Each structure stands twice: as structure tokens, then as C-alpha cells.
Amino acid sequence: MSTTPSRPAVILLSGGLDSATCLAIAKSQGFAPYCLSFDYGQRHNAELKAAARVAKSLGAVEHRIIKIDLAVFGGSALTDASIDVPTDGHTSANEIPVTYVPARNTILLSYALAWAEVLKGDDIFIGVNAVDYSGYPDCRPDYIAAYQHMARLATRTGVEGSPLTIHTPLISLSKAQIVETGLALGVDYSQTVTCYKADDEGRACGVCDACRLRAAGFTDAGVTDPTRYQPR
């Protein structure tokens, strides 16, 4: 008897801890994962090599890397070399940090939506989180709900009665819970890159917000952090 999953799902895969966990969850739920990553002009593009490793190790049916250029607009520390990545860990709870990339999730979800239609799939997975996160407006549950509503109105599949679902399995989990979930599903987190200032070898800086959240997740989960760090 064949155990090959039959339902295609597009997984937005950055190569970081959260998206790797999201891919593992989708596969565990019986979806055939089609992974989509983006070379969008980010300064930390070591994550793309990580995404390729993760997609292969977790058995993606296909992995595509799409090149777009959000650096042409800048406006974010991740796409504009003139803006420093914060390393002091003191971002206000009510402040959207400079690492927010304008409209990024809206753009990436639109590509995922297009591929899902071509695959005749009704499912997209994205690893947004509204608990241990950096305050990005496009990681909130109400944003995802609004985008899903728009997608169901804007697509042939939605109009013809097969509405798309945007899955956000991590949205209410702490970083420790995400780590625990991924480990239970066999994710090798040593293959992932989360840092905003990772070097060409994928080694983390250890001081940016992404590094701080990741490290705290492993500590709170009580497991060894496999992250490779840059010499200090």
C-alpha cells in the first residue's frame, strides 16, 4: 500500500528554526510539501543554503528559490546595508523594529498562492508566530485571517468552491514549544540558520533579536542549542 501523501501544500521555507518546524508539521499531517524560498536581497542569505538543506532532509517533493529584489526599496535593516541590525535587545514592546521588511509576508504569500493554484492545492503553511516574535505586523492572526479571506476571493480555486487555507501551526506557541515540536518530528536544527547577521558559513552573531529568541527557546526547552556561532 502506498503511503505517498496526495495533498500538495506550499511551505514558505526561510531556512530558519520556525519554517523548518512548519515543514515538519505539514509533512506529519500527510501533506506533500512543495517548499518555496526567496532570495529577496536579504543581507543574511546564508539562510537560503540552510533552506536547501532542510528541504532535502525533511523530504520536500520540490524546493524552489525565487529571486526578487526588495533591496531596491530598502527600508529595513535586513535589506539596506545603511541600517544597522539592532544588537542591544532593547526593542520596545510597542515598536516595530527596523528588521521588519515592508510588505514581505504579503509578497511571499502571493507567490505561494500562485504556486498553490498551479499545483491544484488548497493549503499554504507559513511559520509566523505571535508569542515569541519581534513585533512584525504581518505575523499577527488578524493579518493572516484577512489575507486568507482575500485569497479565497481572488483565485479561481476559491471562486469555484475550493477555498485556500493558510496554516499557521506555530502562531500561538512559545519558542520552546516550537523547538520541542520540531525535535519530536525529527528536525535537525543544526541545519537551520535564524540569525539576521549570519556570516557566509551560516554562523550566527548571537546578539541580534533572532539569535536571542532562538537561544532562549533552546534554553527554555532544556535541550542543547546546536547553533554555530561566530568567534567573538
Rank of each mutant, 00 (worst) to 15 (best):
D84T: 13
C139H: 00
I11R: 00
G206S: 10
S28V: 06
H44T: 03
A93I: 13
V101Y: 03
Q148D: 09
T21G: 05
C139A: 15
P8Q: 05
A60N: 02
A20K: 11
I65K: 02
T79S: 08
H44S: 02
V85D: 00
T21A: 07
F218N: 01
I178M: 13
Y34L: 02
V72I: 13
P97K: 12
E95Y: 13
L58F: 07
V131I: 14
P33R: 06
D220R: 07
G161Q: 05
Y136H: 10
D69Q: 13
A204H: 15
A50L: 11
G202W: 03
D84H: 08
R228I: 12
I178D: 05
P97H: 12
A112Y: 07
H90C: 12
G158V: 03
I126Y: 08
A146W: 04
R152V: 14
K67R: 14
P86M: 05
I124D: 02
Y111V: 04
D88K: 10
P86F: 04
F73K: 13
P163C: 07
V54L: 15
K120N: 15
A198H: 03
C208V: 03
A26E: 00
Y143I: 09
L70A: 07
G186S: 08
I178Q: 11
I171T: 11
L170Q: 05
G74R: 09
G121E: 01
I68D: 12
T4W: 02
P86D: 07
V72N: 13
H167Q: 09
A210K: 04
P33H: 08
T79Y: 04
E160S: 11
L164P: 05
I65G: 00
R156N: 10
Y111H: 15
G75Q: 07
K67Y: 07
P8F: 04
D88I: 03
G30I: 08
A50Y: 10
K120R: 14
C22G: 03
I66E: 14
R7F: 05
A114C: 12
H44E: 04
I11S: 02
M150I: 12
I178C: 06
P169C: 06
A103L: 11
A112C: 05
V207L: 14
A103H: 13
A60E: 03
G59I: 09
R203M: 04
Q177P: 06
R156F: 06
T165R: 14
M150T: 14
V159C: 11
D84G: 04
D88V: 08
T155G: 10
F218L: 05
I83P: 11
G217I: 01
V159H: 13
I107W: 10
Y229L: 10
